[in-house]
Nucleic acid binder design. Structure first.
Length: 263
DNA sequence: CGCTTTTGACCAGCGC
DNA sequence: GCGCTGGTCAAAAGCG
């Protein structure tokens, strides 16, 4: 299998050997079992190597996908209107620039807020999913909800609850254009380690997330068609189904305690 | 019982 | 100054 995205080429070798399944029927059952056990172990090793390669290539593709999505950001300007529509000019500016901002003046009645690292992610959800939850691995406590003027869907306000001193806030609202898309705006920087690293990497891409705040129009096209994701899935599926021994190999691997060998 | 969510009230910024 | 709007607070309700 060969997938080419831009100037990067990824190769996944799924060349399992069908002949491994041809059991020498002239042997007595005991020898047969020994021979098959050895074969199974060899296949397990092969599959482990294949899976490792697959994961590495997937990670490379994922990295490349994020790079592509970030490239869109230099040409698009969308979400500042959606999430910071008209009030608080200083915050609008903050969002448009998408960079570190320290407010020069604070409200006389409220403690001065230092808002840094504002970023927005867009999450494609299933039409049946009516919740406003963006699973990013952090723990959030909801402290408010508002219906905004330019969007019928309510905007939910969250604070990071993983660490008491963490001041990171998150706003989640469904897109007015496509209700199946959730927009999550993060303000601030977590001052604690990521609570569950394993939960983050794959789901973000699988859900169709861009870390870029100004790339909705182009990214929405990708979301709607799932073009990039679908391309990858189709390539992988095609590669797998073309290999006649794949199903048998997987079955043999599972029955041979494949996952124990992986660990 | 403690934590989270809900929701109405309050406050501040902005435009007119 | 007034009204509109977004953001936050805090008491009540819900939940495990």
């Amino acid at each position: 299998m060969e997938t080419s995205l831009g100037n990067k080429t990824f190769t996944i070798d799924l060349n399992t050997n069908p002949s491994l399944h041809n059991i020498n029927r002239s042997l007595v059952p005991h020898e047969m079992l020994d021979e098959e056990l050895i074969r199974t172990r060899e296949e397990n090793k092969k599959l482990a190597t294949m899976l490792k390669t697959l994961c590495e290539n997937y990670n490379s593709l994922q990295t490349h996908l994020i790079e592509l999505l970030q490239k869109y950001s230099t040409h698009e300007d969308y979400n500042s209107k959606l999430l910071f529509s008209r009030k608080r000019k200083s915050e609008d500016l903050c969002c448009v620039n998408n960079s570190d901002i320290n407010f020069e003046e604070a409200s006389p009645k409220r403690p001065r807020e230092i808002t840094t690292n504002i970023s927005t992610v867009w999450v494609k959800t299933t039409p049946s999913d009516q919740t406003s939850v963006v699973k990013d691995g952090y723990n959030w406590r909801k402290y408010g909800q508002k219906v905004t003027r330019d969007n019928p869907s309510p905007r939910a306000y969250y604070k990071c609850s993983f660490a008491p001193t963490c001041q990171v806030k998150k706003k989640v609202q469904r897109s007015a254009k496509d209700p199946s898309v959730l927009a999550a705006t993060y303000e601030g920087e977590h001052n604690h380690p990521y609570p569950s690293q394993a939960k983050l990497a794959v789901p973000l891409v699988n859900q169709g997330v861009t870390t870029d705040p100004r790339s909705l129009n182009k990214f929405m096209k990708d979301i709607n068609t799932n073009s990039i994701q679908q391309h990858l899935v189709e390539q992988m599926a095609s590669s797998l189904t073309k290999n006649p021994s794949f199903a048998a190999t997987v079955a043999a691997a599972i029955s041979g305690d494949f996952f124990c060998n992986m660990i």
